[in-house]
């Protein structure tokens, strides 16, 4: 039988033990969270730049092969944003694609990649989102065509195409490669645009990063594997880093559309070390020969 300690002593013990579990480094850090937002490309889908919309207040229409998606308001507004969400709610949305009250979220929101974000990073991201000025702007109804319009359908889709998973570093690879893998596959969510999708809208896993004509906004996302004929095999590590810093490719031409936006509002603000890691990982990918496909329409 365990003898219960007097409540006062119990509380004192808890107070003593707490600092052991929670170090200063573990305290939520909104500044670090802001950096992580930049690593995702700036969460720009949630800002309607074109119509000078408020930062992260949603409402931006995003063209997808299944119809128009509207990014939601992720400012801490209590009525229309994430004001009443807890950190746990946020973590569930990011890693499992489930919103408040068990609402299934459409995978236009790339939880399929964000599921790999580490817990500490999620906490800092959340801490940052709490600091954004709240904006009262109701999120719009999604404009998908059936059957993709049904929330129940999302559940089925997820059962077939999605598994919440943590990022697993490969101990056989150098540190830079692992950091790059994490940035590319989790935060940067590069595959969401650069990997072709099957008719169900799931990423074709054997074609990861081989380029897709069905990128968001109807844009073409090029092959970013190191294939020298159809990918970026001719780009050096320095070329990739410079491109992500400036938006200028080795020919001195500018990144177009969404990629330019992601660079401007996000990737360009990453440290050189992190961009080197991204380049290291991309250069080490298996080259896939994959030319621009014909658009399906």
């Amino acid at each position: 039988m365990i003898r219960l300690l007097p409540p006062g002593l119990m509380a004192a013990l808890v107070l003593i033990c707490l600092p052991l579990g929670v170090t200063a480094q573990d305290a939520p850090d909104p500044k670090r969270g802001e950096y992580l937002v930049q690593a995702t490309g700036g969460c720009g889908c949630h800002t309607d730049y074109k119509h000078k919309g408020a930062k992260l207040a949603g409402g931006r229409p995003i063209k997808t092969p299944f119809g128009l998606a509207y990014a939601s308001n992720i400012t801490p507004d209590r009525n229309t944003g994430l004001g009443v969400w807890s950190e746990e709610d946020f973590v569930r949305a990011m890693t499992q694609g489930v919103g408040l009250h068990g609402k299934e979220l459409f995978p236009v929101f790339p939880y399929t990649s964000f599921t790999r974000i580490e817990r500490r990073d999620l906490r800092d991201l959340w801490a940052y989102l709490r600091t954004v000025p709240p904006v009262d702007q109701p999120s719009k109804e999604q404009g998908f065509a059936p059957p993709f319009s049904f929330r129940f359908g999302v559940k089925v889709w997820k059962a077939l195409n999605f598994k919440p998973e943590a990022f697993r570093p490969d101990p056989a690879q150098p540190e830079a490669w692992n950091r790059g893998a994490y940035l590319v596959t989790a935060l940067g969510h590069c595959a969401e645009c650069h990997t072709p999708r099957n008719p169900m809208g799931a990423l074709k896993s054997d074609m990861t990063y081989a380029g897709s004509v069905d990128g968001p906004e109807g844009e073409f996302a090029p092959n970013i594997t190191p294939d020298s004929a159809t990918g970026i095999g001719k780009w050096s590590t320095a070329d990739i880093v410079y491109y992500l810093q400036t938006g200028l490719d080795p020919q001195g031409d500018s990144a177009q559309g969404l990629m330019g936006e992601l660079i401007e509002n996000g990737y360009s603000k990453l440290t050189e070390q992190d961009l080197q890691a991204v380049a290291t990982y991309l250069k080490a990918l298996k080259p896939i020969y994959h030319r621009r496909e014909k658009r399906k329409t």
Binding site: L248, S254, Q256, G260
Partner: peptide, 17 residues
Amino acid sequence: VGGACKGCHDDFRKPKE
């Protein structure tokens, strides 16, 4: 400069594809 290139290209140049 990159921003100026992109700004004009997005509006006035066909996308590369």
